[in-house]
């Protein structure tokens, strides 16, 4: 489990809105975060490896080495954060389950749960990142 701060910045919301298709999104100092904006907290996660880092080689680990794929995502909104807030994100392992794949092999699904709380410690958003990989790779 690890925690880090996620400042919700108005310019970042504008940039994110444009990237998801609201091409003319204007700067709004009081903007509400778009539905999937919490994934951008990764920019502030010191352990995040899908970016250039001075302590790691690039590119990151390839999928055939067993890191798997992003299969899905779930957001639960206790309330919608707005620009100007600073949230605290806590990342923890979630549930794990197995499922038969279409090509006959078994797949392992694993959740990574990030809980965002506001400055008063009240829950804001819970995000569940679901990763999938071949179960055979896991057992080897």
């Amino acid at each position: 489990m690890r925690s880090f701060e996620f400042p919700i910045e108005a310019g970042h919301i504008q940039e994110f809105k444009r990237a998801v298709g609201d091409l003319d999104a204007s700067f709004d100092p009081d903007a509400a975060a778009p539905p999937t904006f919490m994934v951008a907290a990764d920019r502030y996660d010191p352990d995040y490896d899908r970016r250039l880092r001075s302590d790691r080689s690039w590119p990151p680990v390839a999928p055939e080495s067993g890191s798997g794929f992003h299969a899905g995502m779930v957001f639960e909104y206790h309330r919608h954060p707005r620009a100007g807030e600073v949230l605290t994100a806590t990342v923890a392992d979630g549930e794990e389950w197995f499922k038969q794949g279409r090509r006959g092999g078994q797949l392992r699904f694993r959740e990574i749960v990030t809980t965002f709380v506001d400055a008063d410690g009240q829950p804001c958003v819970t995000a569940r990142w679901i990763n999938v990989r071949a179960a055979k790779e896991v057992r080897e």
Partner: peptide, 23 residues
Amino acid sequence: GVTGEALVAVFGPEGLDRYGADF
């Protein structure tokens, strides 16, 4: 994220309680 734009169109910017998707 782009699919979320359709949700914002009908739920508004703060109307969602939950949004989940499989890729």
